[in-house]
Design a protein around this nucleic acid. Structure first.
Length: 425
DNA sequence: TCTGGGGTCCTAGGACCC
DNA sequence: TCTGGGGTCCTAGGACCC
């Protein structure tokens, strides 16, 4: 039988590893990487984890701990992480025909079934090549289903004795292992489902695997039942190596400081439309509607709260930034209320259709749209930097721009920031 | 003082139709 | 006083992922 297995390749502490790649003196030193706006901690090196710095926690709450242990802090640098991710994935795709890029730091690979030793040896060679060619450490988990491969990857990463590779092929071992892991650590079981399972007395993964199907279906919907099936070794989630077009495109940000004026919000919304429309054109789609939203800071419970949002249908699907900005501005004017301190704004483009199949609307005003113009703008910005040409409504000062106090250089994507190596005689 | 962003899938419930 | 049943479509919101 030519059975297939799944391998999950997962970059270790990805963002922290990226930063360290160009700062080798930080090897074995604690590092954290912050979310946009320097808000939360989104990545930690092992040393930082060992200090008890928690994932996803607000930065300011850990500041004292970070200062005390001299932890290196980085603002997120997505052009660097994106580029290194691409390099890792290229190595995998060179070695394997069927690769699903699951996230910026993870990929599933389809492997033919084989004995434990061969699988482990192969995974180790894969891991070694990524580390040698790109410089990013990875872990590999192998199993008959994606859900089990995720668990195997977790074991590979957590237990040093496996050398970063773990294959779940022995069934006796499997059940003992599953009994030692909390249901909340399973891929697809989030906080809410874990609470439900706990209330039902289903605490560990072995119990989830053997839970009653009807109960699962009723309480955790088909997705919960599917997860249980996968734990039993029945593959329900196939490898999907195609990168389908997105069905929705979002651009949003918290502001570096709260803003109140309609003028500032207009700049921010226009900027988000511009970013989202570029992504839309990149996948050769057009959008039928634009959703605009603005929020006050929900964490400031004593301040007046307001959240305004509106979906604006377009007369005909568009990817032409000026048209989209125009409609978004009208939507913003309708949801804007003065007197609030806004903290976040954004847009979501939905009802996406292929650009070459846009239905022309006889009565639409948008008959002056020029896609060649947008293509030219995109090309210039590609060559000279993202903000070389932009729309006046996006503003010049952009006083609402996010905070990035600890950002590292774009080492690999900007000529101006490329590392300089000096040799001395 | 300071709390991320982008995406998918599923379901319940309302609107509407015959 | 009595007040159907079945179907589709759409949307908002929840839950999950990294």
């Amino acid at each position: 039988m030519n059975k297939k297995l799944f391998a999950l390749v997962d970059c270790n502490n990805f963002y922290a590893s990226c930063e360290r790649l160009f700062r080798p003196e930080l090897k074995e030193k604690p590092i954290v990487v912050l979310s946009n706006n320097d808000g939360c901690i989104v990545a930690r090196s092992n040393e930082a984890k060992a200090l008890g710095i928690s994932m996803g926690a607000p930065y300011f709450k850990s500041k004292e701990l970070i200062r005390r242990h001299n932890v290196q802090v980085f603002s997120s640098n997505y052009s660097l992480y994106g580029d290194l991710s691409h390099r890792v994935m290229s190595v995998l795709q060179d070695m394997e025909p069927e690769v699903e890029i699951y996230s910026i730091d993870e990929a599933f690979i389809s492997l033919p079934a084989s004995n434990h030793q061969d699988l482990t040896d192969y995974a180790k060679s894969l891991k070694a090549r990524v580390e040698q060619w790109v410089g990013i450490p990875v872990s590999v988990g192998i199993a008959p289903t994606k859900t089990l491969a995720k668990l195997a990857g977790r074991v590979a990463k957590k237990n040093g004795k496996y050398g970063g590779v773990f294959a779940l092929t022995d069934h006796d071992e499997l059940d003992a292992l599953l009994s030692s892991i909390d249901v909340g650590d399973v891929w697809g079981i989030g906080r809410r489902s874990a609470e439900k399972l706990h209330r039902q007395g289903i605490l560990n993964v072995f119990q989830l695997k053997n839970a009653n199907d009807n109960w699962l279906r009723k309480n955790l919907t088909v997705t919960g039942l599917r997860t249980a099936m996968e734990l039993r070794g029945t593959s329900c989630i196939p490898l999907d190596s195609a990168q389908p077009n997105k069905k929705a495109i979002i651009s949003s940000r918290s502001f570096g400081q709260p803003i109140s004026s309609l003028a500032d919000l207009k700049e921010a919304i226009a900027t988000h439309v511009s970013i989202a429309a570029k992504k839309l054109r990149d996948q050769r789609s057009a959008a039928h509607s634009i959703h605009v939203f603005i929020y006050t800071n929900r964490f400031k419970e004593d301040a007046p709260q307001y959240s305004g949002n509106m979906t604006i249908p377009l007369p005909q699907a568009s990817s032409y930034t000026p048209t989209m900005i125009k409609h978004a501005m009208q939507g913003l004017e309708r949801v804007y209320k003065p007197g609030y301190k806004y903290n976040k704004a954004g847009v979501m483009l939905t009802e996406l259709v292929p650009q070459d199949r846009v239905q022309r609307n006889l009565f639409a005003q948008e008959n002056r749209e020029s896609l060649p113009l947008m293509e030219t703008v995109d090309r210039i910005n590609q060559a000279w930097g993202r903000n070389t040409i932009r729309f006046a409504v996006e503003g010049l000062k952009q006083s609402w721009q996010m905070k990035q106090s600890h950002k590292s250089p774009a080492y690999t994507t900007s000529w101006a920031e490329i590392p300089v190596v000096k040799a001395s005689l």
